Amino acid sequence: MASKIVTSVVRIVFLVIFFLFLFYPDKLHIRFDYPDYPRSDNWFVRLAKLAFWFLLIIEILRIFYYGVVKAKAKGILANLVTITIPLIVTLIFLEIIFMYVPQSHEGVLSKASQIWWEKYWKPVNSLGYHDKEVEGNKTEKTTILVIGDSFAAGHGLEDVKDRFSNMLEEKFGHDKTQVYNLGVSGADTRDEAKRLQEFPVKPDVIVLQYFPNDIEKVAREKGVELSGAEPYADISGLSASIVRRFYLPNFIYWQLPHTGFSTFEKFVQTAYTDTTVLNAHLRDMSQMIAYRDSTKAKMYAVFVPFLFQLDKSAVYTKPVEDYLRKNGVTVVTLTDGIARIPEKERVVGKNDGHSSAPINKLIADRLYDVMKNR
């Protein structure tokens, strides 16, 4: 029996090396590189982790069997081991389960959100957009380009059919209209203008999805600081390492409140009332207007507010709305419609404040009603 325990211990030593390779690759100066890294959690890497945990369980139970059960060990140590081993195995099984539990999250901060991204962020076309492949200009069809950030891209929606751009194409008819979605998570107005200019298909219609944080990057450039804790800043040492690297503790961590919306709200308010920041932001917006003029496309702008701060959002973004209207852009507002939707139904999930399917339907309906008569 002693020899069997020794062989298990030897195998566990080799598993420790496997463990470091899988869970602490940075300590070994190793980097896993795969499509959409680090936003997506690779299925094959998780499969390797699954194999590690099962091998570890086998060796733990083997040592327990030969060292305690078959040896008929008694005493405090044997009793302690008898209690501890089932707890360890249970935790390992829970860790395995949460390796396959997806949950969308703003900023793809959690491990569950990386699983979500790998599972649901499809399709992705050859240009990198979360959309169908580009077919090119077809004269018999009206081409609509939807530009925006993660709200346009459909972050948090498990099916692109629930996204407003897809609903809009459905409403107008696939035989008459082609709608391309150029939404990218984290994009600001400057990025969006550049992507419009580089897109290979020229539009008949441009739809700009605008969110109050679109001013964030230019505000930072102009020295407006966003205070507040970074992710995982409230933990340190061993606990931080465990939470960052393992699925079960990471999932538990992100079910607890860690955000400071009031801090971000103050940042946005400062940005829109600072004329230096606002003027720079409007200059970026003018590039989009210039592109519209060069293509002779019609342009619409849909303003998605902070979904739980409707009135304040309208106040913040009013200068941008006024600028767009002044330049011939049809502005579509949503505040009254969103107010009729219960708060819990406005967002895609507990940890993700992006627009839910009902909000996307509202956007599609409003856009269609405005556009069909034009």
Rank of each mutant, 00 (worst) to 15 (best):
V304P: 00
T317M: 15
K298F: 01
D293N: 12
Y316T: 04
V320L: 08
Y291I: 01
D311N: 09
T317Y: 12
F303L: 15
P319L: 11
Y316N: 13
S313E: 01
A314I: 06
S294T: 06
S313L: 06
S313W: 05
Y300G: 04
V315H: 09
F303N: 05
L310M: 08
A301C: 14
Q287A: 07
V302T: 15
Y291L: 02
A297M: 04
F306T: 12
L310D: 11
Y291N: 02
L310I: 15
R292N: 06
R292M: 09
E321L: 06
Q309T: 11
Y300L: 11
A301S: 15
D293K: 09
T295D: 04
V315S: 09
Q309V: 11
K312F: 14
A314C: 09
I289N: 03
V315P: 00
K312Q: 10
M288Y: 01
A314P: 00
K318Y: 06
D293E: 12
Y291S: 04
K312V: 10
K296H: 13
Y316V: 04
K318N: 14
K318T: 10
D293M: 01
A290W: 00
V302K: 07
M299F: 09
T295P: 03
K298E: 12
M288S: 11
P305L: 06
L307H: 07
K296I: 03
A297G: 08
I289P: 01
D311I: 07
D311P: 01
A290I: 04
V320F: 10
Y291H: 09
L310W: 05
D293Q: 10
K318M: 11
D293V: 05
K296P: 00
T295H: 05
A290T: 11
F306K: 12
I289G: 03
D293S: 08
F303P: 00
A297E: 05
Q309D: 14
Y291G: 04
D311S: 10
V304L: 15
V320A: 01
Y316P: 00
D311G: 07
E321N: 03
T317E: 14
L310Y: 07
D311A: 11
V304T: 15
F308S: 13
F306H: 12
E321P: 02
M299P: 00
L307P: 00
V315L: 12
M288R: 04
V320K: 03
F306S: 14
A314K: 11
Y316F: 12
T295I: 03
S313P: 01
K312T: 11
A314M: 14
Y316S: 06
F303A: 14
V320R: 05
M299E: 01
K318V: 05
V302S: 12
P305S: 11
M288E: 10
A301F: 05
F306L: 15
Q309S: 15
F306Y: 13
D311K: 06
D293G: 02
L310Q: 07
I289S: 02
L310K: 06
M288W: 00
F303W: 08
S313Y: 03
P305T: 10
F308R: 13
M299V: 07
K296C: 02
P305A: 10
